[in-house]
C-alpha cells in the first residue's frame, strides 16, 4: 500500500486518532517495553510530592511512537527514511491525541522519490504536543 507520487499533492493530509483518554497503564506498558523507568512517568507519589508535577505524564517517546504509527500507516511499511520531532507540550493521563501528516513536498533524491511530510500531534484542547517531519520513499 505504498503512496504514489503522481497521486500526491502538496497540502494533502492524513490523520489518525492516536489514543483516547490515555491510561496510566499504557504509560507503564511503554516504560516496560522501552526500558525507560523514570518515575516521572509511572510513580504518582514521587511525581506529585517530590518532582511537584500535577501527575505522572507520558514519555515524549510514547507520543512519538504513537505518532510514528500514523506515519507508517500512511506511507507504508519499511518506507520511512527520516522521522524527527520536537516535544512541545507534556501529555497527561486522560489526554486524547490526534496526529496529522501534511504533504509539504515531493522530490527526487538519489534516484528515489521522496515525500516530505509535516507531522503534528495535538491534544483535546488543540495544543500541539509533538511537532516534526517525516521523509518517506514513495512510488514514482
Amino acid at each position: 500500500m505504498a503512496l504514489k507520487a503522481s497521486e500526491l499533492k502538496v497540502g494533502d493530509t492524513y490523520s489518525e486518532c492516536l489514543v483516547e483518554d490515555l491510561k496510566r497503564t499504557q504509560i507503564v506498558q511503554y516504560a516496560g517495553a522501552s526500558g525507560d523507568y523514570n518515575p516521572l512517568h509511572t510513580d504518582e507519589v514521587f511525581t506529585t510530592e517530590v518532582a511537584k508535577y500535577p501527575s505522572v505524564f507520558a514519555h515524549g517517546m510514547l507520543s512519538m511512537g504513537m505518532t510514528g504509527r500514523m506515519v507508517t500507516n500512511y506511507v507504508g511499511d519499511g518506507r520511512l527514511k527520516k522521522f524527527g520531532v520536537r516535544f512541545t507540550s507534556q501529555v497527561w493521563p486522560g489526554d486524547t491525541l490526534n496526529a496529522t501528516a501534511t504533504v509539504e513536498e515531493v522530490s527526487e533524491e538519489d534516484g528515489e522519490t521522496i515525500v516530505n511530510l509535516k507531522v503534528e500531534t495535538t491534544n483535546q484542547d488543540g495544543t500541539t504536543v509533538v511537532s516534526g517531519y517525516a521523509l518517506a520513499r514513495v512510488d514514482a
Binding site: 523514570n38 518532582a51 511537584k52 519499511g78 527520516k82 524527527g84
Partner: peptide
C-alpha cells in the same frame, strides 16, 4: 530537593528526537 534540576531529579526532559533510517 527544591523541585528543580530537571523536574526534581527526574534526569531532565526529552526535547527533541530525530531518526535517520539506513534500513529498518
Amino acid at each position: 530537593s527544591g523541585g528543580g534540576g530537571g523536574g526534581g531529579g527526574g534526569g531532565g526532559l526529552h526535547a527533541e528526537q530525530h531518526y535517520e533510517y539506513h534500513r529498518h
